[in-house]
Design a protein around this nucleic acid. Structure first.
Lengths: 336, 336
DNA sequence: CTGAAAGCGCTAACAT
DNA sequence: ATGTTAGCGCTTTCAG
């Protein structure tokens, strides 16, 4: 029996008699045989693996997304190669040198701005890219509708009767932050509420674009220093910052829902603990979709680059003041 | 100039004149050339990538470890293939079918018990395995000294004057839990303190071996139901459970350091928020070491399988009662 | 020191 | 339907 035939059954080629097919299969099974992925890859010019470039710092978010990615990828018999970018400035250098080129059939960028020349090069190599948590008109993007989300969050606060609402932001350099601020503005406008510039603060920290507890803590202190003209409620651009803000509030001897209500964004694990009202992002599902999208491209889809927006969902807990009683028990664990 | 020569310079083969070497290098650079990893892998019988099998649920711990692994691996020019095991029962099936066999030079198992036949098979294939956060006499293992850690934690509580100390455990099926309980016992013994069996509770939950907030919450309620014979301090086998325990304490209208002190284990991110005193595990460093160990094996080390223990470090915050004042500011962010 | 040729394990095109 | 053969892109003898 020729080696070619074996190859055929392994690749489900039609021209193989059922007899030989089963014979090959059983013998392969008995020998515990598996085709060598590299040899196959070389011959087929396909690696059956995709690269995920992630900023390692946004832990909870990216873990959830990756869970989704990996789960879909496993189903597709693809491997996930993880590449953590610690210093955003080194993205290109790193990805170049790593000769990730011929090693993967596609690449996923999470929460990262892709360098222009990188896009060009991968374009030339016909290696598709899909973005997660960022957006670009010329690439497939999977992201959350930040404007809408912030809008919803703000409306919630408004519906609770708040008038003096502030927004505590991370760095305005961050695209999601800009969008979230925009949503806030829209909602305030629509409600005919004044936006006091004093109450709209943002970070100029270079550390993680201001997505840190410290940033939330410091900015909240500023807000609190406003004294009687402080806001009665604030929207915070991320849960992690909200945690810092809550800290500042507590430290100032104030009570969270009563003296000042807060709504976060993300619904990271911590949020449940803090009983933080927030906008949930369907991270796992975003990961699954991203994997699907990259697959479509790999399989030759020529559709124009598409947006794949997800709508964040308002999770009402206690920091907004809408629910003041304690629960009997903690919320159920996320399904693992 | 022959293809062979090119190959030689790429592999730093000595027999190449500096003249041709630089010539090849510059031209390669100009063409933006990179050797094809699969072709190279096929020829050299080496993939230059390692597999990390991780249980996706233990998020924070594994992210940190992986950060370490990846950082070292990148340095070694190795790729990291991530495989998330959601259902522990499927480990072998999954890894078999994935034909991970010839695809990686080594495998890392995080927080997981490796199936026996898996070990045998990889042994036969000469693909080295190293364990992280678990132990096996016949494999290299990188882990934390749980006995010592629990001992230290318990001693801390004892030094604070506590006599009625309890321990709240996850499932006794978990190796780390057993070890932590052992450390607790030793410390109590050495101090001549009685261990009230009522105060040593453990979970029989099958969900994540009881490493959940709910588990901590429920077990703490049991402890609290003891009324006046309740412990004045408890050691909890993990931070995540400690968070649930704190919840139960609060819900019962009790105050944490005052009515009952608690010390956790792990130092997950959450711990800072909760101001939880806990035992820190050097997760990143464990990852780095694991990567180094696997590299040694790949490079043919024949040393007998070795233990690589790390000693956990006591992090004193407020739930133990040793520091009662609030901080001026939150602790600095972990370096990312 | 360098060129030529065989081979890594598989796929795909071409015969039969 | 199946056997044969020529690559896939690189490494590695073996000559020279």
């Amino acid at each position: 029996m020729g080696i070619g035939t074996v190859s055929r059954v392994l690749n489900n080629h039609p021209n193989v008699s059922l007899a030989t097919r089963t014979r090959v299969l059983t013998i392969a099974n008995r020998l515990n045989w598996q085709p060598h992925p590299y040899a196959r890859g070389l011959a087929k010019q396909k690696t059956n693996s995709i690269l995920a470039a992630v900023p390692f710092y946004s832990t909870y978010f990216f873990v959830e997304v990756l869970r989704g990615v990996q789960s879909k990828l496993a189903e597709m018999e693809y491997d996930l190669i993880l590449y953590g970018i610690n210093d955003p400035h080194h993205i290109e250098e790193v990805l170049k040198k790593k000769s990730m080129r011929m090693r993967v059939d596609g690449v996923l960028f999470l929460s990262m701005t892709v360098p222009e020349n990188f896009v060009e090069e991968y374009n030339r190599l016909k290696i598709p890219i899909v973005l997660v948590d960022t957006k670009r008109k010329d690439l497939d993007s999977v992201y959350v509708e930040n404007v809408k989300g912030a809008h919803t969050a703000t409306n919630h606060l408004i519906s609770l009767g708040h008038k003096r609402i502030g927004m505590l932001n991370a760095s305005m350099r961050s695209q999601p932050v800009q969008e979230r601020l925009e949503g806030f503005r829209q909602a305030m406008d629509e409600a005919g509420l004044e936006i006091d510039p004093q109450l709209t603060v943002s970070s100029n920290s270079t550390i993680l674009d201001g997505f840190t507890r410290e940033c939330g803590y410091e900015l909240m202190k500023e807000l609190l220093n406003l004294g009687s003209s402080r806001p009665t409620a604030i929207l915070v651009s991320s849960d992690i910052q909200a945690s810092g803000a809550l800290w500042a509030i507590e430290e100032a001897g104030l009570k969270c829902p009563d003296d000042i209500a807060v709504v976060g964004f993300d619904d990271i694990e911590l949020a449940r603990h803090l009983r933080l009202t927030t906008m949930r992002q369907p991270m796992f599902d975003m990961g699954v979709l991203a994997a699907r999208k990259i697959e479509e491209r790999i399989n030759g889809s020529q559709l124009p680059p598409a947006d794949n927006p997800f709508v964040p969902e308002l999770v009402i807990r206690e920091t907004c003041g809408a629910r003041r009683e304690h629960h009997e028990a903690p919320e159920p664990e996320m399904t693992a």
